[in-house]
Every structure is written in structure tokens, then in C-alpha cells.
Design a protein around this nucleic acid. Structure first.
Lengths: 198, 198
DNA sequence: CATTTCATGTAATCCGTTACATGATTCC
DNA sequence: GGAATCATGTAACGGATTACATGAAATG
């Protein structure tokens, strides 16, 4: 069977979508966007992003221009094409798969009986600190993008340069809900272990 | 640099831990255990499980016996060794990484503005049906393993043959919380889109 | 009669991560 | 002086997934 001429993966569309949302952007700046609160949707390493950008160019979904800089390395700035926008829109209409979660701590929790009692408790307590930190960061993000629960957030247009975006707000809100849920689970688990062991 | 004689990954310890928890088990039955509600901790395909079982045997962390059957293919039944239990306990004491989530729907949500309004709404509504189903399944699991919020659940011993296990209960409770949170997010997002579009 | 279940495995590909590579500048 | 930031890439390796493979028995 011949290999498809145009193979595209979730990460391909993620990068394409980011170009649509943010306008002309370099790989370096895309990476920063990915790192800002979007981890709850999809993560990406810089080598992946550079790869996908080249792929988008091959497919004619994006075009590239080099910006020369004196004191810094040149920037390669990509922008989405008409074809790229069509491909993105078509992909958005496809049905989605289930979210995939993998959590070492949950695994160690289920095996908690196979190590000294303190062991699991320590891991749960350490995790609580990390997740409290994450929750605080996300609440800051919510302010940047605008709270999607407020009607005014949907009335302003979404612009390339601006962070204001109620759709992104929905995803950040998902992150907030996730971290809040996770913390509640941690605290309840810690309390139950403390109450019922020894 | 010479390759480590004993490389072990999260999935290695997951399989090892399942052997500790359930006693002598075949790869086939381990796969069924993995599929039952443990997806919120770690997922595994059957080919992965068979691989890891052979690895455990190589390391001396598990031993294998073949059970011949007349009407069915032979079963290879693995059980954990003393060394395996030590390795498991040591791993449980290691600090954990952050949970990793990847969710195509969250990604499509953040890009909702780049397709017709109905598109995202349809995906969100379809997802709500799937997650309601999952939540119902998990609530059944909670009953099987015992609600860890009840003190009596911690007083009974955990036995190889029995499903009763408050630690597993904690993880299933995590799944319940996750699905509940996810559904609330879906419903709120749907409501906000309906209220603010068109 | 077709699908599912039982039961184990191999092979290929895929996608993702990590490490390697470069080099100037700015910050502490 | 050393670390971090800016900026882009290549190469190697890795675990995870999917497809391929077999075959009898039970289920509907």
C-alpha cells in the first residue's frame, strides 16, 4: 500500500491551529505559547514543533519568511495559508478520541499497601505542593484570556496580537477545574490514610 | 557508556505491582485487570504486558509456570518473587512526575473560532454522552472495591483473590472525580457557547 | 454461521523525548 | 565568571500502539 502523500497528526494540527490563532510566529515563540497553560490540551517539545512547521510548509499549509537579526540568530516566521485554514477547519469537524491520562502517582496509590505506610503519604503530600503552585499559575492565565463565563468576553473580537480569547479561556478553566479536583482528591486521600493507618 | 543490565520503566512496575496485588496471574488476565477502571493510572496493551512479563522473568522479579489446558491454549501464569517485591517497594519510594493529560477535545475547544459555530458544539455534546457512560461504569467499580471513605474498608485485609481494596478504591474515586469534573466542564462550556453565539 | 472469547505472541511503525550541536547576549 | 535566554536544528533512542498471526470453543 502506498504511503499517504499527506499524513498529518494531532500535533500537526495543533501547530497549524496555533499559527491560525497567533498569526505569523516563529517556532521558538510557538513553544512558549504551548507552555502557557495549554498543557491540558496537548504538549509539544521544541524539536516536534520545528518538525511540524517544516511539514506544514511541505504541504502548502504554511509559508515561511526569514527575519534577519543582528544580535540574535535569524528567526523563521511562519504564517498559515488559505489551504492551511481549510485543512484546519476540516480537522476540527472530525470526531475526537477520549482524553488520555497517565499518572504515576495514581499507580503508586493503588499499590500503596506494598511499601511502608509513610511512603505513599509522602508522595501525596509532595504532590499537593506542586499542584497548589500550578493552580495559582492557571488562575493568573484565566485573567489574561478573559473569563469565558462573562458575556462580555464573547463580544470582543479575537485578534492575532491579543491574548483575549474566550475559547482559550474555556481550556484554562478546564485546567483550573482539573487542578482543583486533583487537590481535593489528594487532600481527601491523605486524610483517609492518616485516619485509618496505624 | 554500557547499557544498564536492568532497565525498568513505569509499565514494568505497573505489571509487577499487579502481580503483587493479584497473585499468580496470566498476561491475559492482567490485561483485563488493567482495563477495569485503572485507565486513570496507567494504560497497557496486551503486547506490552507480555513483553514486561518476560522482562520480569529475566530479572528474577517473577517466575512462570505453564498451565496446560485441554480445550484452551495453555496459560502462562506468573508470580512475583522476593526480589520482585523488593524492587517494587523501592520504586514506590521514588518521587513521581506530574500527571500527563492529552485531550484532543480541549485542543479543538481552544481553536473553536476557526470552524463553524456548530462544529465545536457537536463535539462537546457527543463527548458528554461518552463521559456519562464512563462515570456510571466507575461508580459500579467503586462498589466492587469498597468505598475508601468508610473506615470499615481499611480494617479488612487485602487478599489476592478478592477485589476488596481501599487503595484501588482511592484510584477509582479519582476516576469518578475526574469524570464528574469533566462533565461539569462540558456542560458549562456548552451552555456558554449556546448563550453567547449567534 | 458469524462474532466474541480465550490465549499468546511477533513485527512494524509511530510519535515523542532526550541528547547533541552552535553561539551570541544578557542577567546575576 | 556562570547561568539563563534567544533561536534553530539533527540524531538517536525509546516506549506505545497497531497490525499481523494462529486456532479452537463458546455464544447468539
Amino acid at each position: 500500500m502506498p504511503r499517504k502523500a499527506q499524513e498529518a497528526y494531532t500535533i500537526t494540527y495543533a501547530v497549524l491551529g496555533f499559527l491560525a490563532r497567533w498569526g505569523a510566529t516563529s517556532g521558538y515563540d510557538l513553544k512558549r505559547r504551548f507552555d502557557q497553560g495549554m498543557g491540558y490540551a496537548w504538549e509539544a517539545t521544541h524539536s516536534q514543533i520545528y518538525n511540524e512547521l517544516r511539514r506544514l510548509k511541505r504541504y502548502g499549509w504554511a509559508e515561511m519568511e526569514t527575519e534577519e537579526q543582528d544580535t540574535r540568530p535569524d528567526r523563521k516566521v511562519y504564517h498559515i495559508t488559505e489551504q492551511g485554514q481549510e485543512a484546519l477547519s476540516a480537522w476540527l469537524g472530525q470526531p475526537v478520541g477520549l482524553p488520555r491520562l497517565r499518572d504515576e502517582l495514581a499507580l503508586k496509590t493503588m499499590l500503596g499497601a506494598f511499601a511502608p505506610e509513610k511512603t505513599l503519604l509522602q508522595n501525596l503530600q509532595a504532590a499537593a505542593l506542586v499542584h497548589e503552585q500550578r493552580l495559582a499559575e492557571l488562575q493568573q492565565e484565566l485573567e489574561d484570556h478573559g473569563d469565558p463565563a462573562e458575556a462580555s468576553a464573547w463580544q470582543q473580537p479575537i485578534e492575532n496580537g491579543k491574548t483575549h480569547d474566550p475559547y482559550i479561556g474555556l481550556v484554562v478553566q478546564f485546567g483550573v477545574r482539573f487542578e482543583t479536583m486533583y487537590l481535593a482528591w489528594l487532600h481527601e486521600s491523605i486524610a483517609l490514610l492518616e485516619a485509618n493507618l496505624k
